[in-house]
Design a protein around this nucleic acid. Structure first.
Length: 317
DNA sequence: AAGTGGCTCAACCGCCGCGGG
DNA sequence: ACCCGCGGCGGTTGAGCCACT
C-alpha cells in the first residue's frame, strides 16, 4: 500500500473470478459508447458488480479491439527475448513494442515458455538470462531499432517517455534490430467515434451521437454504437466464432478454446456475418422497445431478451 | 476409464508513481 | 509540503485443460 489508502473498491458484494459474457458485453458496450475516463466509477455506471481494476484488466488484457490472438510467432518470441535482455521484467515496456500483445500475455509466455527454453542455454553458458546485461557487450550481436508505443499515455508524455527510453537505450546499446510490426492504433479509431475520455461527475452518462428515429422521424433513443460499428464486435469475434463453429443441433464434439481459435476460416466468417446481422436486429428491437420507457437501459433489455432467446454467446459459455 | 501431475493463462493482489487539491 | 485518489505495473494464484500412466 502506498500511504494507507483505501482499497480500490469495497470488495463486499462484488463479483470475482471469470467474467461472464454479459459482463463482457456490458463493459464493451459501455466503453465503446462512453470511454473509460474513470475506471473506479465505470462499473457503477456500466451496471457491473466488479471493481474498477478488474474492469480495466479485463478490457486491457482481453476485450480491447487490438488484441492479437493466437500463439506467439518466432519473431515475437525473439523480440521478447531480446527486449527482456535489455529491459528485464518491464513487461509493459516490452508489450509496447509488440502491437496487439499485452504485458500479461508476454509475462505468461516468458514464464511458461521462454524462460525454460533459455534455461539450458544458461546452464551451458553459465549466464543468467533474466539478468539485465550489465554492459552493452553482451548484446553486441544484435542491432535493434524499436518502435514502441505506450497507448495509455498522452502524446506529450509519450514523446517524453520515448525520448527518455531511446536515450537510455542509446546509452546501453548501439543499435539493435527487431522486426516490429507497424503499430495498430485502434485507439485513434475509437476516439474518432466519440470515444474520448469522460469523467463521471454526473450520474447521467453523456448523450450519444447515435440515435434511432421513429416512424415519425423523431429521435427515440440513444443507442450504443455497437449497433452500427462492426469493429466493436471484432472484440469478441474469436469467442463468437467458437460458438458459431459448434453444431448446435447435433451432438458436436466439444472443442477447446485454443482449438476453436485455430479453426477460424471463411465459413466461420460468413456465419459470423450472418450472426452479426441477426444480432444487430436484436439490438434495434431492444432499443426500440426501451425507447418507449423513459430511462430504460437498452443494454439491460438486450440481455433480458437474450435470456428468452439464447444467442451463440450462451452456447459459447 | 480413472487418477494424477504438469501446464496454461485469466484474474487477483499489493505496491508505486504521479498529479490534483 | 503534505495528503489522497487513481492508474498502472509486476508478481502470484488457481481453475481448467491436457497428456501420461
Amino acid at each position: 500500500m502506498g500511504r494507507g489508502r483505501a482499497p480500490c473498491c469495497a470488495k463486499v458484494g462484488l463479483n470475482k473470478g471469470s467474467w461472464t459474457p454479459e459482463e463482457d458485453m456490458r463493459l464493451i458496450a459501455y466503453i465503446h459508447k462512453y470511454g473509460h475516463g474513470n475506471w473506479r466509477a465505470l462499473p457503477k455506471f456500466a451496471g457491473l458488480l466488479r471493481c474498477g481494476k478488474s474492469c480495466r484488466l479485463r478490457w486491457i488484457n482481453y476485450l480491447r479491439p487490438d488484441i492479437k490472438r493466437g500463439n506467439f510467432t518466432k519473431e515475437e518470441e525473439d523480440t521478447i527475448i531480446k527486449l527482456h535482455g535489455l529491459l528485464g521484467n518491464k513487461w509493459s515496456k516490452i508489450a509496447s513494442c509488440l502491437p496487439g500483445r499485452t504485458d500479461n500475455e508476454i509475462k505468461n509466455v516468458w514464464n511458461t515458455h521462454l524462460k525454460k527454453r533459455l534455461a539450458p542455454k544458461e546452464e551451458k553458458s553459465g549466464e543468467n538470462p533474466e539478468e539485465i546485461p550489465s554492459s552493452p557487450s553482451s548484446i553486441t550481436t544484435a542491432s535493434v531499432s524499436v518502435s514502441c508505443s505506450d497507448e495509455g499515455e498522452s502524446k506529450k508524455e509519450k514523446e517524453q517517455n520515448d525520448k527518455e527510453q531511446h536515450e537510455a537505450m542509446d546509452d546501453k546499446i548501439d543499435k539493435i534490430e527487431l522486426s516490429v510490426e507497424p503499430n495498430l492504433d485502434m485507439w485513434d479509431m475509437l476516439e474518432d467515434s466519440s470515444y474520448s475520455e469522460i469523467t463521471h461527475e454526473n450520474v447521467e452518462p453523456p448523450s450519444s451521437d447515435v440515435r434511432v428515429k421513429g416512424d415519425d422521424g423523431n429521435t427515440l433513443v440513444d443507442l450504443p454504437e455497437i449497433l452500427i460499428e462492426p469493429e466493436i464486435w471484432n472484440m469478441i469475434n474469436d469467442d463468437l466464432n467458437i460458438a458459431l463453429t459448434r453444431d448446435t443441433t447435433a451432438a458436436a464434439t466439444p472443442r477447446t478454446h485454443h482449438q476453436n481459435i485455430k479453426a477460424k476460416g471463411e465459413d466461420e466468417k460468413e456465419r459470423w456475418l450472418q450472426y452479426l446481422e441477426k444480432e444487430l436486429d436484436s439490438w434495434e428491437e431492444c432499443a426500440a422497445a426501451t425507447a418507449q420507457v423513459e430511462g430504460a437501459d437498452p443494454v439491460a433489455s438486450y440481455f433480458q431478451a437474450l435470456q428468452a432467446s439464447p444467442s451463440p454467446l450462451d452456447i459459447l459459455y
